[in-house]
C-alpha cells in the first residue's frame, strides 16, 4: 500500500499547525478586543460619543510606569478624575526625557479592571504614536477620552495605566 497520500496529509497538518501558532498572534488580539482580556484597550481613535448619562459617576485614575531603563518621567496632572459616562474629558500628562540622548518613547496603555477596557474610548492619546523626545526635552501630552455609557454597572472605578518604553534601540535595529 502506498503511504504517500496519508503522509502528505499528515505533513500538511503539521505545517498548518506551525502556521497556526503564528496565527494565534493576531487571533489573540481579536480575542483580547472581544473579551477585554489583559486590559488591552484599542490603540485607534474612537468615535464621538452620542449621549451622556448624567446619573452615573465613574472614578478614572491614571498611573504611569517607566519600564526599567526607560529614561522618561511621565505623570498626569491629576491622579484621578470623576467623569460622567459619555462625557468627554481632557487630561494632561507631563513627559520628560531625563537622559542626555535623544530618545523615542512608546507608551502602552492598559486598563483595569480588564472588562472596562473596551468601554474606555480615547479620542486623542500620545500612546497612538511613537513620541520622539530630545535629550532633556519636556513636553505636555493630551489625553482626550470618554467612558462608554454601556459600562457594566458594577464597575465604579477604572484605572488607566501607561507603561512607557524606550524604543530607540528597536527602531535602530529594525531600520
Amino acid at each position: 500500500m502506498s503511504h504517500a497520500p496519508l503522509l502528505k496529509r499528515l505533513v500538511l497538518i503539521c505545517l498548518g499547525m506551525f502556521a497556526f501558532a503564528f496565527a494565534m498572534v493576531p487571533l489573540y488580539d481579536v480575542f483580547c478586543d472581544v473579551t477585554g482580556l489583559n486590559g488591552k484597550p484599542s490603540l485607534e481613535q474612537a468615535k464621538q460619543s452620542t449621549h451622556i448619562n448624567e446619573k452615573r459617576e465613574i472614578d478614572v485614575s491614571f498611573t504611569t510606569h517607566a519600564q526599567s531603563g526607560a529614561p522618561f518621567k511621565v505623570k498626569s496632572h491629576e491622579y484621578s478624575v470623576v467623569v460622567k459616562p459619555g462625557a468627554m474629558r481632557e487630561v494632561l500628562f507631563k513627559a520628560k526625557n531625563i537622559s542626555n540622548e535623544d530618545k523615542v518613547m512608546q507608551a502602552v496603555p492598559s486598563v483595569s479592571p480588564g472588562k472596562a477596557a473596551k468601554y474606555l474610548h480615547k479620542m486623542a492619546c500620545f500612546c497612538f504614536d511613537q513620541q520622539p523626545l530630545k535629550a532633556g526635552e519636556e513636553v505636555e501630552f493630551k489625553l482626550l477620552f470618554y467612558v462608554d455609557t454601556e459600562l457594566p454597572d458594577d464597575v465604579e472605578e477604572i484605572t488607566l495605566s501607561y507603561t512607557v518604553f524606550d524604543i530607540s534601540k528597536q527602531l535602530v535595529a529594525s531600520n
Binding site: L15, M17, F20, A21, F22, M24
Partner: peptide
C-alpha cells in the same frame, strides 16, 4: 497537532 505549536 501540538508539537508544531511548540516549535512556533
Amino acid at each position: 497537532a501540538v508539537m508544531p505549536v511548540l516549535a512556533g
